[in-house]
Design a protein around this nucleic acid. Structure first.
Lengths: 125, 125
DNA sequence: CAACCGTATGCCGATATGGTTATACCGTAC
DNA sequence: GTACGGTATAACCATATCGGCATACGGTTG
């Protein structure tokens, strides 16, 4: 259960990553590089939801949503479980949230920095 | 200078991120969602490099590389510094490496998992 | 069985993106 | 000043992606 894990992994050696590995990693990042998909992940933070529930929660069209879910699933960010006629999607694990938090941290810093540049001597506005 | 920082930030509140925020975060992830750009970041791990040096290091075309660098710079992942006729690019900070490490960790786990599914009872092949 | 509901998929148009070529920009050196 | 090297930008093409519509698939209910 520990989220404490070594940062260096077996197939992820430090030396010159192969083009295939770069492609795989890039594909993962690209799966997160879409506002709609980030919104889906956010909606799933509170627990699993069916496609219909996600339609209501995110405002996306059903077909569109289904395709985004497919991509998130292929990238390993969400799991799918049949429940009767429904299909529940859930966050595969919490690491994706960690990724988003890190990215948001960067964003905050940059926004603060650009704010400081835009108005170096003003108070807040 | 500390890389130790709280995970929750001012403008990154937990409640229903605005579409603008989702777009900003997605843009950051998308900047990493390209093998060529990941290769550039990897090349910069050992220190700053000029565009010409990066051309040699990555094998990308000069114009193409310049555009990728522009995107990485806009996303805040690299810094640019003029040095005579050259322009040196460098990793803006180490957090981007942390992001890649996290993503590679996920990837490793998933590859191991799929390997286990493909050959549940075989030794290694 | 048929009817129905939830989900996935195929097709389409609009738009975005990556890569190449040619060229403009900006320093430096002569 | 001109000539030249390094970098950025513009124009272009090919391809990928998103979103919507229609429809097919799968499971449930009667």
């Amino acid at each position: 259960m520990s989220t404490r894990r070594p940062v260096r992994h077996a197939t992820t050696a430090r030396r010159t990553p192969t083009p295939e590995l770069l492609g795989l990693v890039a594909g993962r990042f690209r799966a997160l590089g879409e506002p709609a998909r980030l919104g889906i992940l956010h909606a799933l933070e509170d627990g699993p939801l069916s496609v219909t529930a996600l339609v209501a929660r995110t405002g996306l069209g059903q077909a569109n949503l289904s395709k985004h879910l497919q991509q998130l699933h292929s990238a390993g960010f969400v799991s799918r479980t049949r429940r009767g006629m429904f299909v529940d999607y859930a966050l595969a694990d919490e690491r994706v949230l960690h990724l988003c938090e890190l990215m948001c941290g960067r964003l905050d810093d940059d926004l603060a920095a650009s704010r400081a540049v835009m108005a170096p001597q003003r108070r807040s506005a």
